[in-house]
Every structure is written in structure tokens, then in C-alpha cells.
Amino acid sequence: MFEMGDFILEARSLSKEFGGFAAVRDVDLAIRRGSIHALIGPNGAGKTTVFNLLTKFLSPTRGSIVFEGRDITSLKPADVANLGIIRSFQISAVFPHLTALENVRVALQRKLGISYHFWRSPRVLEGLHGEAMEKLASVGLANFADSPAVLLSYGRKRALEIATTLALDPTLMLLDEPTQGMGAEDVGRVTDLIKEVSAGRTILMVEHNLGVVSRLADAITVLNRGRVLAEGPYEAVSRNPEVMEAYMGTSAEDADG
């Protein structure tokens, strides 16, 4: 069951200490290729720290990270992104004063390999407009191509963020609380969107909304106080008494968040 190639990403005894405080302790994480894997846990459990470690925004104190059989523990964030691991952020990560089209185009232009060319005319980027419009249409933003991202509603910003991430055609998408702060209608829409874009990809997501998790996730890892508390499919994990005590006890307030 644990043969190589089965898992796209494996973290082994991942630990991060901040001046003596262990935010993440000996976390083992294995993400199956093609699955949607959810990382849940109460506030302060270390979920975002794990994200930052996996994408190298933080360096682990101990432990190793292997992506597609390759040790990426010592790589830089941009290198990790270039390997196809693209993350989103807890607060919506758009470029506020660029238009929706430009947001997506910034991601698309990377593959042209001309991003350092400060002498080139912006016309070379116009060839990307068709593809950018396609990505925007796929998240329902075709009519907002020329709106500055800052003017979009919260739900649309998250959709734009997903469109931008998709533009890089990531092998592994890391979504940090994609439905946080959304109204019920937007939550439904973004959940559908994630389901839709998950085809042929692997997704690791941090999510508080257990409804979303139960709908989307193939596997769940529960973190508590920086440690893995439980792992497995939703049904098994949600019946785990330890999880119920540590996590479900606070789920009422978290579900609102």
C-alpha cells in the first residue's frame, strides 16, 4: 500500500520551532496522487505552518519533504513553485490593482520565459489573452476581465485566485482555507469549483468548514497542537473520539469563521 509513486508528496517527521515553541512536531504526511486531502484542526494547530513548510516559505527545523520522489527540503519557494506546487493564501491572494485578466496573465507569462525582458513590448503578452479569458471563464469571471481585482467581491477574488493558480497548471495545489469568510452561496460555488478543477490534479487544503471537507476530501489529516492526531477518510476520522474531543469541541465557533 505504501509503495513509491503512490504518493505525490511525503513529509517525514516535519518539525518547526519558533524560538523554543514547537509549532509543528514530527508531522508525517502522505498525499496520494490525484486525491483531495484536507488538513484540519483547531486554531493554532499548525496547519498554516505546515503549508509554509511544504512551500518553503518557512524552513523546517527538522524533517524532510519529498515531492515526486525528489527531496525538496532545501529548495527555495520559487523553485518549489516551478516544480508545480502552487499555493494559495488564507487572505485572498490577488494583485489588487491589476485587472482580473492581468492577474491571470502574470501567471501565464511565466512559461514564455521572457519575464526578465524589460526591453520587450507588452504586445508579446497579448498572445496570452485568449488563454487568460478561458481561465477566467472557467471560474465564471469572463465578464470581469477588465475590472481591477480590488473591486471584485470576496467570493470572486477567491475564484480569481483559483484561476490564477490554474493558469500555472499545477501538479499539486495547496489551498489555505479557500472558503474562509464566505457567505453560504459563495461557499457552495467555490466548493463546486474546487471539485471541478481537481480532475487530474492533487489538492491539499486547509479547511475549517467541515461540510466542505466532507464533500470534497478523499483523506483527512487532523492536526492538534502541532501533532498529527488522526488520519484517514472523513467517516473514520469524524468518529475518532480523540478528534471529537480536540477538534469537534471547538467546531461550532470554527464553522462560523
Binding site: 519557494p77 502552487i86 502574470v106
Partner: peptide, 9 residues
Amino acid sequence: ARALSLGYN
């Protein structure tokens, strides 16, 4: 941070 996460150095 977002530019970095899109793979730009």
C-alpha cells in the same frame, strides 16, 4: 508573497 508562490524569483 503571491508573486513568489507563482514561481517568480
